[in-house]
Design a protein around this nucleic acid. Structure first.
Length: 190
DNA sequence: TATGAGATCAACT
DNA sequence: GTTGATCTCATAC
């Protein structure tokens, strides 16, 4: 029996509960993807969050309903994928940072121009490229409908936490979550 | 292994 | 005009 799909109410909880619960879940976009092994939580009271300074054109999806995709451009180059959490208007989200590639390997290798499985999706920008994430295509779309497919994890994985990566504000908050021992993380946990 | 620069753009000051 | 939830490649140790 296949694992149950994750529906939108799954995301209508605190971002700090949703983020660790996503570790081990399976994410596919148009049938391409794998197992989530690393995420980070961003809360609206958190100076590092895009929603911290209030609603803008870029972050408007974060201020909408939970269970939708928020996509932003990072450093002018990369597309990064977030899942909006908590009750509507709270403007919190989980950044998907790394997955273990499982389905659509050939597609991901072609998009990335690489064959090394460990480097296909081991970082938010890489993952975006491998899964074909763009703002035009995915920003504001529901996570329980095509082209997204999300499946609950089986069993309870061992989860490690640490400080978030690549930020300068609120850098000390331990809001990075990972699958213990995974070879597909963007960086090892201490 | 470690550090540094370049790519490239939208939000914000 | 500056900054940033990044990545890759080059050069140095």
């Amino acid at each position: 029996m296949p694992p149950p799909k994750l529906h939108r109410p799954f995301f209508a909880r605190s971002v700090h509960k949703v983020a660790p619960d996503l570790i081990g879940a399976t994410l596919l976009i148009d049938g391409v993807g794998g197992r989530i092994v690393e995420v980070e939580a961003y809360h609206h009271t958190d100076p590092a969050a895009h929603s911290f300074g209030g609603e803008t054109e870029r972050n408007t999806v974060m201020f909408g309903s939970p269970g939708y995709a928020y996509v932003y451009r990072s450093y002018g180059i990369h597309w990064c994928l977030n899942f909006v959490c908590e009750p509507e208007g709270s403007a919190s989200a989980v950044l998907i940072r790394a997955i273990e590639p499982l389905q659509g390997l050939a597609t991901m290798r072609r998009r990335r121009g690489l064959t090394d499985e460990r480097k296909l999706c081991s970082g938010p920008g890489k993952l975006g490229q491998a899964l074909g994430v763009t703002r035009d295509k995915l920003n504001g779309l529901a996570l329980d409908r095509s082209p997204f497919a999300l499946f609950a994890r089986e069993g309870t994985p061992e989860i490690v936490t640490g400080v978030r990566i690549g930020i300068t504000k609120a850098a000390e908050l331990p809001w990075r979550y990972g699958l213990k021992g995974s070879r597909f993380l963007s960086k090892p946990f201490q």
